[in-house]
């Protein structure tokens, strides 16, 4: 009873804190000065058609580097938490084999899904999408394979190698920007090209591809760890 009163009081307090935000702030008429600056200079300076990508990869690239690091730490935490040594041998169960339909569809679709993921992160500077979305699509292909063959395991060495190499490539391209252009993660190491073509926007497509591979490997690692039965 006491707890219910406390919960109600906490919710009412939060409601009062959030009320002006929801009902009084209203909708802006114009973007702020910073946003207008980004909208006008990002296509001209960097040659990126998608301004959100330009902000994520270049203007706030350092943020994204930190975010990828947080993702790595969380994945490592999930993996460390759910090893068989910690859970004991009892955690190994027998799994039902997948149906014929699922196995055939997996064989047909895996290549297409991976190709779609690569398409999304390579075109991140032109269309909606980018490394994070493409990485998730690749992780979906891995999930499909895990569902089709529950007893199999991911090649752990390959996953670790992809993750480490793409992370190193990300930092290396960023450092190239510091030495050859105007700062860390500056994409103008390569010519920016014309807006709308695949090879444009300097190193933005390369950086986003590295992010896509890293995110895909990490999310696949999370799925594999939560599935269990890891040797």
């Amino acid at each position: 009873m006491m707890r219910k009163v406390m919960v109600t009081l906490a919710i009412i307090g939060f409601a009062f804190a959030l009320l002006p935000l929801a009902f009084r702030a209203g909708v802006q008429a114009e973007p702020g000065a910073l946003a207008t600056e980004y909208l006008e200079t990002a296509p001209r300076e960097l040659g990126a058609a998608n301004v959100v990508t330009a902000i994520v990869v270049s203007y706030r690239g350092f943020d994204t580097l930190g975010e990828v690091a947080v993702l790595f730490v969380a994945t490592a935490g999930v993996g460390a938490m759910l090893t068989r040594k910690r859970l004991g041998p009892a955690a190994v169960g027998r799994r039902k084999p997948a149906t014929e339909v699922l196995r055939t569809a997996t064989g047909l679709l895996t290549g297409l899904i991976v190709m779609f993921g690569a398409y999304i992160f390579m075109h991140g500077h032109l269309t909606p999408g980018g490394g994070f979305q493409g990485g998730v699509v690749i992780a979906t292909a891995v999930l499909l394979n895990v569902l089709a063959a529950p007893e199999s395991h991911l090649a752990h060495g390959v996953m670790t190698a992809v993750e480490a190499l793409s992370g190193a490539a990300y930092v290396a391209i960023g450092l190239l920007g510091a030495f050859l252009a105007w700062g860390f993660l500056d994409p103008r190491v390569m010519p920016t090209g014309s807006i709308g073509s695949l090879v444009s926007a300097g190193t933005i497509p390369l950086i986003y591809s590295a992010i896509g591979l890293k995110v895909g490997a990490e999310l696949s690692g999370i799925i594999e760890a939560l599935k269990g039965d890891r040797p």
């Binding site: 909606p128 999310l219 799925i223 599935k227």
Partner: peptide, 20 residues
């Protein structure tokens, strides 16, 4: 961009992670 991320992660992978 955010809509794609939310559809793929929020309603796809998060559900799978919860169910596993």
């Amino acid at each position: 961009d955010v809509a794609m991320t939310e559809a793929a992660i929020g309603s796809g992978l998060t559900t799978v992670v919860f169910l596993y």
